[in-house]
Amino acid sequence: MAVTAPHDGSGTRSAYEQRGWCAAPFELEPELLASVRSRVEAISRTARPEVVYEEGSDTVRALHGCHRYDEVCAALVRHPAVVRLAEELVGEPVYLYQFKVNIKGPREGQEWPWHQDFAFWAHEDGMPEPRAVNIAVNLDEVHPANGPLTVLSGSHRLGLVGDGAAESGDDWRSHVSARLTHTVPEEVARALAVEHPPRQVLGGAGAVTAFHPSIVHASSNNTSADRRAVLFLTYNAATNAPAHPKRPAFLVERDTTPVRAAVHTG
């Protein structure tokens, strides 16, 4: 399995369009990273609907919509470099569609099966087109043993290749558990990997990566003693908002006002 470095030196947009993912030309500032990590750890200790646990466990699996009630997370949404990257890759003004933190506890964090994010956004929310982008921020070092994201490079150009199901009607928790509603079958992913090389997305804490809504991806169980937390900011084109989303607002943001980047004072 090939391994990526935090920065690969290729043009950001051209790499994104060709492979469906790219390393950002910047990292999160250490002070901001520390603040976000602190807030994530504090939120993880609270009892809120937005806090999701591993099945049959009290181990936190994910946090959702933190920007709606936490100032540090809300400020991150407007980070100038992050907003510029999202606008560059989407090609027009964007709004925040989804904010989540996926956490894999040491030796307990479970896998995410092969899937495409756009399958959920199209079937469950009614997003018209995959004109959105995921910006992933490593809150911890991500290495081969703690459950890194694996992407099938270039698979974003294939459209939806999974189950093709209509709206599931399931409880939204089936969209965030290890038993996902919309998946790409293992045998299909193996076949796709012949033409679309698997790449593990690795990097230190603070590294930033962008990946396309239609790219086929998965992540393995955390078999190490190290936590793996990755924060995902999903920005959608302002002209691509779902007309009538039904899932909770902490999963699908209702405010479609384009994000205005904060004035950088550093």
Results as ranks from 00 to 15, higher is better:
17 E>Q: 15
138 N>H: 15
64 H>L: 15
168 S>H: 05
261 A>Y: 09
33 L>S: 05
91 G>Y: 10
141 E>P: 05
237 A>P: 07
104 K>S: 02
240 N>S: 09
210 A>P: 04
207 A>K: 05
122 A>Q: 13
16 Y>I: 01
262 A>D: 12
142 V>L: 04
61 R>S: 14
232 F>M: 14
133 V>R: 09
196 H>Y: 15
10 S>P: 01
186 E>P: 02
137 V>S: 05
113 P>L: 09
263 V>C: 07
248 P>G: 01
188 V>Y: 00
214 S>K: 09
34 A>C: 01
40 V>T: 11
36 V>H: 06
69 Y>F: 15
74 A>R: 15
61 R>E: 08
156 H>K: 11
243 A>I: 03
30 P>H: 05
15 A>E: 06
188 V>L: 01
52 V>D: 00
97 Y>L: 07
263 V>D: 12
117 D>H: 14
115 H>R: 11
91 G>F: 10
139 L>M: 08
46 T>F: 02
10 S>I: 05
90 V>S: 10
160 L>T: 03
199 R>F: 07
21 W>M: 04
198 P>L: 04
170 D>I: 00
191 A>F: 03
62 A>K: 15
195 E>W: 08
131 R>H: 13
41 E>D: 15
194 V>W: 08
250 F>C: 00
262 A>F: 04
52 V>G: 00
210 A>D: 03
36 V>M: 05
50 E>A: 13
198 P>V: 02
251 L>C: 08
241 A>Y: 07
164 G>E: 00
102 N>E: 00
146 N>S: 10
237 A>K: 10
233 L>A: 10
9 G>H: 06
209 T>I: 01
203 G>M: 01
95 Y>L: 00
257 T>Y: 07
143 H>V: 06
14 S>F: 04
45 R>W: 01
57 S>I: 03
157 R>M: 04
11 G>K: 07
225 A>F: 08
235 Y>M: 10
125 D>A: 15
205 A>I: 01
4 T>A: 13
161 V>W: 06
216 V>E: 07
178 A>H: 12
24 A>L: 14
242 P>H: 09
224 S>V: 02
192 L>H: 05
152 L>H: 14
69 Y>D: 11
181 T>A: 14
70 D>E: 13
168 S>M: 02
239 T>E: 13
149 L>A: 06
96 L>V: 03
12 T>M: 08
210 A>E: 02
17 E>M: 13
247 R>W: 00
129 E>L: 13
123 H>Y: 09
53 Y>F: 02
18 Q>G: 01
174 S>R: 15
157 R>G: 07
114 W>E: 04
218 A>K: 15
237 A>R: 12
194 V>M: 08
188 V>I: 07
51 V>Q: 00
158 L>G: 03
182 H>R: 14
64 H>M: 14
